[in-house]
Computed example of a mutant assay.
Amino acid sequence: MNEANKKITINDIKAKKGKEKIVAITAYDALMAGIFDGEGDIILVGDSLKMSFGGENETLGATMEEMLYHTKAVCKGASKAFIIADMPFGSYSTKEMALKNALRFYKESKADAIKLEVGLDKAEIVRALCNEGIAVMAHIGLMPQYARFEGGFKVKGKIDSQIKTLLDTAVAMQESGAFGILCEGIKSEIAESITQRLSIPTIGIGAGVACDGQILVWSDVFGFFDAFKPKFVRRYCDGKKLLKEAIKSYARDIRNESFPSSQESY
């Protein structure tokens, strides 16, 4: 198979540890997944869709049916990228529930892995999933599903007790079988310590350059969402402005009857 068309596997992701930075981005549909496919390594079908496209101020409302729908769509659009699906809030409270719902992602979509927001208390759940052959990425640090509980989105690693918990959790997840760790909203030096301590790759978002890879929400990085700009986001284009200009041109051409032309008509 041509390397350019090769499907990225879990072994490819793990092999990049300490050798090549891992490129990850979110997508929620086949169209965008197809555009991103082949340009990076990982596409995450994140429950961030509730905020980015659902107009919500948190991720808690995502359901299993929604996440399965969007995961299946992304899998249809991307043939090369390693696809990770978010387990939504309330879908992995117990080992039995986690296994039942994780198996749905594997049976009903072609997702390569799932992602869980975890603390030390979830180590046995991660172990149970991995023992059943389900690839797990563990999400530590700032966990959006805990935003109500914590009174907002809080950066982690500022105090000693948090630092110890983060390090202990990362190690516990590796020992439980997780193939990677997503570090969100963690002080850079702590994320670096985690990355150095682990043999599995780390993906950062708001966690500094030392992580083995980086991820951003696509509507943030390409300027379609501009209600606010998180500190950790770099915008690579002003997508909203470009699209607004395009729709204005489209509307103008319809109103002045320059569209459709004779060449665009049967």
Rank of each mutant, 00 (worst) to 15 (best):
3 E>M: 12
5 N>I: 08
9 T>E: 09
10 I>R: 14
11 N>L: 13
18 G>I: 10
19 K>Y: 10
31 L>A: 11
32 M>I: 14
38 G>D: 08
39 E>K: 14
41 D>P: 01
45 V>Y: 03
45 V>A: 03
46 G>H: 04
49 L>K: 09
51 M>E: 11
53 F>P: 00
53 F>Q: 13
64 M>D: 03
72 K>I: 00
73 A>N: 06
88 P>L: 08
92 Y>N: 06
100 K>Y: 09
100 K>S: 12
103 L>I: 03
104 R>C: 08
105 F>E: 02
111 A>S: 11
113 A>Y: 01
115 K>A: 09
117 E>S: 09
118 V>F: 04
119 G>S: 14
120 L>R: 09
120 L>A: 06
126 V>K: 04
127 R>M: 11
138 A>W: 01
139 H>F: 09
143 M>T: 03
152 G>F: 00
153 F>V: 02
154 K>L: 05
163 I>H: 07
165 T>Q: 14
172 A>T: 03
173 M>F: 05
174 Q>T: 09
180 G>I: 00
180 G>A: 15
182 L>I: 12
184 E>T: 01
186 I>M: 01
187 K>Q: 14
187 K>W: 01
189 E>T: 13
194 I>T: 08
194 I>R: 01
203 I>L: 15
212 D>T: 05
216 L>Q: 13
217 V>M: 07
218 W>F: 14
219 S>E: 12
221 V>R: 02
222 F>S: 10
223 G>C: 08
225 F>I: 05
228 F>Y: 15
229 K>A: 06
236 Y>P: 07
238 D>F: 06
240 K>M: 11
242 L>R: 10
243 L>S: 12
245 E>W: 09
248 K>F: 11
251 A>Y: 11
251 A>G: 05
252 R>F: 13
252 R>W: 07
257 E>L: 14
258 S>N: 15
264 E>C: 02
266 Y>W: 15
